[in-house]
Design a protein around this nucleic acid. Structure first.
Lengths: 190, 190
DNA sequence: CCCTTTATTGAGCGATCACTCAAGTATATA
DNA sequence: TATATACTTGAGTGATCGCTCAATAAAGGG
């Protein structure tokens, strides 16, 4: 008996993600969302409940996609080569809404307000860090890097470097590709 | 004939800096500022002109103070030791409004809106980067590090690492001091 | 003292914020 | 086709946004 929505929910979440990623939480108004999603307020709230609820969905899609890209890279090239390629891959996409990481942007914007979305962002970052650690561990198992290192320590540092890279890539007049190459290069010396 | 203001302008700017640093640009309302500065709207606008104008002043103070701390560190310990100590110093201050860099927070928040303050933040970051490069150069002159390196390249990477560290330090459950130690340690291998 | 000049006050401006809801519309099932 | 069940519409909610300004208070110079 029901009537179907005339939109693709997944695509709406992707469009929201791109807008939130670029403009941030406070920087994205409901008018902006209505324009990009081609939805009136009533439909919007029927579909997503609130701005924050949609932001959460958008951030989840962002995190899952990032994790997927890394895993695919690891499947194709092996763990250490994946970690080497990832930084460059992440900043070279000209079509991406922003160079900086959506999770870190959200964290920095909302952490001081104790906003639940900041905590959510940190959880996604932790998941990513675990995946980094797993790849370092695999690289040790296959003898690609010295097994004396603690994979968790390597992952922690790698993620910090990646976050720094992506902030730098957001700046004008900074050769981020060169930094990415340096990060990749430093992994060959493990 | 005139009447003197009954406040210390410099202190007001410092209090504003702390609030802006912690809460960000959009996250700080005029009500917040009025509360912290103990000023009514009229006085506020007579004194500073606008929220953005005060933010600019606050950011300048932030940048100048940061530069000063680095320079004092270099005078006391020498260039390379200063660069080694700086990361730890920057994240260990518990009284600071935030661990993350105010300039990077401003850049990430406002860059996508082409807000003048984002450009301003980048200029301050460039100045800081120049100071890093100068210290690396001094370290080369005194033979502390290999002179084959390009000081600008070292400075670019150092600043990126520092920005990453400070984002990481903002997170819960991340041992930022360990990352700071690693950054410092990597400078001994130059 | 008076007078000029500036600082301070606080009610309130228009604009925008996230969001609501009653009314209208489309669709799958009976 | 009739009906039930959603989805869609868009004017409009109260709250908050950055900010203005006329009125008042205070402090120097004469």
């Amino acid at each position: 008996m029901p009537r179907k929505p005339n939109y693709d929910r997944n695509e709406l979440i992707e469009r929201s993600r791109d807008l939130f990623w670029r403009r941030g939480w406070a920087g994205t108004s409901l008018k902006d969302l209505e324009a990009v999603l081609q939805m009136k307020p009533g439909s919007f709230y029927a579909a997503f409940g609130s701005k924050d609820a949609l932001f959460k969905l958008a951030m989840e899609k962002y995190a899952v996609d990032g994790l997927d890209r890394l895993k695919r890279l690891a499947t194709e090239y092996g763990p250490i080569k994946a970690l080497q390629r990832f930084p460059q891959m992440v900043i070279e996409n000209e079509e991406a809404p922003a160079k900086a990481c959506m999770l870190s942007k959200t964290l920095l914007e909302l952490q001081a307000h104790n906003h639940p979305l900041a905590h959510e962002a940190n959880l996604h970052l932790l998941k990513m860090e675990s995946q980094f650690a797993e790849l370092f561990e695999q690289a040790q198992s296959s003898g690609e890097i010295d097994s004396a290192y603690d994979p968790q320590v390597l992952a922690r540092r790698y993620q910090s470097d990646l976050l720094g890279l992506r902030v730098s890539a957001e700046r004008e007049g900074v050769d981020a590709m060169a930094i990415a190459a340096e990060i990749a290069d430093s992994l060959t010396r493990l």
